[in-house]
Design a protein around this nucleic acid. Structure first.
Lengths: 242, 242
DNA sequence: CGAGTGATTGAAAGAAGTCAAATCGCGTGG
DNA sequence: CCACGCGATTTGACTTCTTTCAATCACTCG
């Protein structure tokens, strides 16, 4: 029926509205705002490893993650890489750059098969004009991002590596953890390299640290692509240790 | 005349407008917006070392620095301290917390004698309602803060200490440097401890690093409260060195 | 089964932190 | 005006944490 729908599009209007309800930008707004937002949205599917856009591209589009997971990578001038954050359903991607009219400062890569909704700058402007609460939500969202960055800066600036890794794992667990029989599982692939680039260390140090945790029974066995935490409380202790 | 003006208030309406013109929030907005903003503003003077408010306080007030310099300190749960940034004339203080309705996440301390303008949450809301461009500017300001934090996170996560110190000194020079006969001067007191807390290192390492720079003739002599950079270009090299 | 990618681990080097002590500069009070 | 005391700074010696370098290993995919 919808001949113009992008390849791989499978979400109907209700599914889109459900996604928007969970999002930082539309969450808590009245139904007519959600409907207007859903109507204006396009859908796009990314396979694991695909980039949503490239760092340095002109920022023309707002995105919200519908399902799956994006890893936001920032390449440094000297060829290293920093993982700014992982983003899951409901998270806004690209909006800060679009609103400031600067190039995208990082590249979002699908950590798993991922679906996103998108709005052009113009459409989002119209939406914000028609629904002023959206602008307030945008401010709120950006404030949350600032808070998060300040916390990470503080961690990287003052804490030792093991604490940072513990805190990072716990944050991801808090955002995306799934309870299983064995413990809490991180439901998407998270490599040692990823953790290293999130915590500002090397994959070697991460590997050693996780090996020690496995030894201690804090997390589950080796070389499985999904990390399982068996003793979250112990991780909390590590993340708070003086 | 103005019996209700706070102690130490010395700015007339024009002086306030001049400050607003230079600010991130009001800069570039039409004269009537500036006038409305200036009219709604209160003034406050801080002596060196005074706190504008305390981390953890309810965020009820927006501030803009009129003159002087504030150091934004964040105390960590384990008793350390991180300097989030220095703020000078035109910079907004506290607004992120006010708009998100969360406690102030840090304490701004006057690094020197400092004057600020302030608006209650309600007054600022009225202003934003009456002048929609203000909300857009607020979004822009927050975006800039996010960018800055991402850059610092990247630095702390990937660069060695000397590079970070060099980059930090250069950033401060870019924001506040004054040219003198001897070189570029940072016109407010900046201790080794301050630099350490900005770069995530110890005052010992900062002291050693600056001593080496003095040795090399990059900056000026020791134990003077205002740092003078004699060879900025060399500092740029250090901040970019692989 | 072989290649390739990611992970693990040992050994050595290096960067920065900790501990400790001396020094300097400045303001205070005699 | 000068001695005293305090806080900031400098510096040396040592320790520790991380990284770097180098192999090896495990698992997955073709």
């Amino acid at each position: 029926m919808l001949q113009s729908a992008p390849r791989g599009a499978v979400m109907d209007a209700n599914a889109k509205i459900t996604v928007l309800k969970r999002s930082n930008l539309f969450g808590g707004l009245p139904p007519e705002t959600l409907e207007a937002g859903a109507e204006a949205a396009k859908e796009r599917k990314l396979d694991k490893g695909d980039a949503l856009f490239q760092q340095g591209d002109d920022a023309t589009t707002h995105y919200i993650v519908a399902s799956g997971r994006l890893r936001l990578d920032q390449a440094t001038p000297d060829g290293k890489n920093v993982v700014l954050r992982f983003m899951g359903p409901g998270d806004l991607v690209g909006s800060v750059a679009v609103m400031r009219d600067i190039p995208y400062p990082a590249t979002p890569i699908a950590a798993d098969e991922t679906r996103v909704l998108s709005w052009t700058q113009a459409r989002m402007m119209d939406l914000m004009q028609a629904h002023p609460a959206l602008a307030m939500k945008a401010i709120n969202m950006m404030g949350g991002r600032i808070e998060e960055l300040q916390e990470r800066l503080q961690q990287v600036a003052t804490q030792q590596v093991e604490r940072r890794i513990a805190a990072t794992v716990l944050k991801i667990v808090g955002q995306s953890g799934r309870k299983t029989e064995a413990g809490v599982e991180i439901p998407f692939p998270l490599s040692r390299q990823d953790l290293a680039e999130m915590t500002g260390t090397t994959l070697h140090t991460v590997s050693r640290t996780l090996s020690a945790w496995i030894e201690e029974g804090i997390i589950e066995g080796r070389r499985s692509s999904h990390i399982v935490i068996k003793r979250p409380h112990r991780l909390v202790e590590i993340s708070e240790q003086a």
